[in-house]
């Protein structure tokens, strides 16, 4: 395991019982300074993996290194900030005093309190008891606690979970700000669009297994061209004869072409000269959500059984 990675896991597994395998041999690498999105449906194993990375849960098998140290060790946690699921705080203490307790445990000077409260926009309500906070404020305090140590690595588990649309947008902005600079962020979510907007690389976990990993472009694969033309049969024959078209799929009255998009103009000219009326020629990119569902279908069909698809 090398120092280039903020997080490295090798066959990380958590089995709760004979019948409950929460995480199944996850091997992933999160590079220093990148924003890594960890996506998958509820119950896929995202939170369990994250809990193992901060030492709350011990793996049943496999190993992990977090910033080059064993997960959960004081040396590792000193440089890691984490918010796992809904943040837990003392309801009888104010937001500020809750952070004070955390800062004392972390060995962080209390002058950091004002900075992080300001950063998450809670300075005005910092003196109020935590028990009176809205869900959004609780999440923000959780984020403040994660930022107390000005960590090199930030582990955020579903930071927008339970928030209303306004809160989701607000939290997304916070997270986007936090991803600026040198900090590594390991972010889990089941909201694909959220991850698509923020992350450099993405890992998709399903039923405890990492089924795909790569950059967004790698996972999406090559961009496609959607072609609608009349007559469609002639267009199809024409396109099939073109050497630069790598793949052609007929889909619901249109043709989906995999090819170099730089040659779209050339394609159009050739179709027109072959007396084909082109009514639509648009580039299309697969969304992360579509990639995810394609993978699910492929997995169910047995295409990616036992392997992680690396885009």
């Amino acid at each position: 395991m090398t120092m280039d990675f903020a997080i490295e896991t090798d066959g990380l597994t958590k089995r709760y019982s004979e019948h409950i395998l929460a995480v199944d041999g996850v091997t992933l690498r999160v590079r220093r300074g990148e924003v890594y999105g960890f996506v998958g449906p509820n119950g896929a194993g995202k939170t369990t993996t994250m809990r193992m990375l901060v030492g709350l849960i011990r793996p049943s098998a496999g190993q992990a290194r977090v910033l080059g140290k064993p997960p959960g060790s004081p040396d590792s946690l000193a440089r890691v900030g984490a918010m796992i699921e809904a943040p837990g705080f003392y309801p009888f203490l104010s937001g500020r005093d809750n952070l004070r307790v955390m800062a004392r445990h972390a060995g962080v000077p209390e002058k950091r309190l004002d900075a992080v409260l300001e950063q998450v926009g809670l300075a005005d309500r910092a003196g109020d008891p935590f028990g009176t906070y809205s869900m959004g404020m609780k999440q923000r305090l959780g984020l403040a606690a994660a930022l107390l140590k000005d960590p090199e690595l930030l582990i955020l588990d579903e930071p927008t979970s339970g928030l209303d649309p306004e809160g989701i947008a607000e939290m997304r902005d916070f997270v986007r700000q936090l991803t600026q600079g040198e900090r590594t962020v390991f972010l889990s979510s089941h909201l694909m669009t959220e991850v698509e907007q923020i992350c450099d690389r993405i890992g998709i976990i399903r039923r405890g297994r990492l089924v795909a990993e790569g950059t967004l472009d790698e996972l999406r694969g090559q961009p496609e061209l959607h072609l609608r033309a009349t007559p469609i049969d002639r267009a199809r024959r024409m396109v099939e004869s073109l050497p630069y078209v790598e793949r052609l799929i007929a889909d619901d009255g249109k043709l989906v072409l995999t090819m170099d998009l730089q040659r779209a103009g050339e394609l159009n000219r050739q179709l027109v000269s072959a007396d084909v009326e082109v009514t639509e020629l648009t580039p299309a990119r697969t969304s992360l959500e579509e990639v995810y569902f394609d993978l699910v279908q492929a997995e169910q069909a047995g295409d990616v059984e036992g392997d992680t698809y690396r885009g």
Partner: peptide
């Protein structure tokens, strides 16, 4: 959970 993630 929150406390143990801080370091102690």
């Amino acid at each position: 959970k929150t406390t143990l993630m801080q370091r102690p």
